[in-house]
Design a protein around this nucleic acid. Sequence first.
DNA 1: CTATTAATTTATAATCAATATAAATTAAAT
DNA 2: ATTTAATTTATATTGATTATAAATTAATAG
Lengths: 137, 137
Amino acid sequence: MEKYKRMLVEKGIKPTFQRIKILEYLEKHHNHPTVDMIYSALYKKVPTLSKTTVYNTLGVLSKHGLVSVLSTLDSEAHYEYNFNSHHHFICKVCHRIIDIDVPCTFRQYVEELGHKVEEVHGNFVGICKDCMEKQYE
Amino acid sequence: MEKYKRMLVEKGIKPTFQRIKILEYLEKHHNHPTVDMIYSALYKKVPTLSKTTVYNTLGVLSKHGLVSVLSTLDSEAHYEYNFNSHHHFICKVCHRIIDIDVPCTFRQYVEELGHKVEEVHGNFVGICKDCMEKQYE
DNA sequence: CTATTAATTTATAATCAATATAAATTAAAT
DNA sequence: ATTTAATTTATATTGATTATAAATTAATAG
């Protein structure tokens, strides 16, 4: 709790119970959750929680760079804790999102074109290893 | 017209007037349009066109690999004609999507992890050159 | 410690892109 | 020319997100 409270205060965000719990959830679960997943998971521990608060909090956290919104083609937005820069593999079969730890090699090139790059989103879309293997069982 | 008709027939898609016009629009306009943009542009020439048809057609075309859906954080989906593989720069200020002609260097690495890669989406998000220059005028 | 003020949370309603449905139209094939 | 199947269209519905306003909570001053 204290850890997350400090992180929020450092960014100038009022550390409410709900915000602490949502930030904690995202830091501990690297499952790229949707609003609904976060809400369902925290509802047990924070029974008064409302979905609007999850939306609001994710907005605040991402505005301050603590979390990122992923660029997926899913109808629901997926979020992740901003622990380091990496790419994603999105499986068309099981819909899992898998972290791919490669750096972006073109950021500087794009900056040299005159654009200011603030975020890099790299997605590989296809069929993940597990689903490929299941096809041949 | 004939060119687009042939492309559709080759893919086994029935070449209706609406589909030909939508494919033609996408091949000629590299503005990464939304459904609404396509509908508004074609409405003049195809007055009976309905938005549902634009949705359906884009679904058919992307299923057959003629067009791609972009991974943006926008509420509306953006489409593009599949002329070659490239990345995108998305401007937070003017919301333009700019083609960035760089290849993806990690596709093979991801394949080696055991995942089957079918699409690669690379997005740089930030402030484009034009908007950066306008800030200092 | 209490009261005041401002911010946050919550419940509810509204929005809007996308999809589902079914009737009307068109195209393909005999 | 007729039948059949596919496509288009109009309409209704869905569902994620946002807007609004009331209730609650947190921060601050007295």
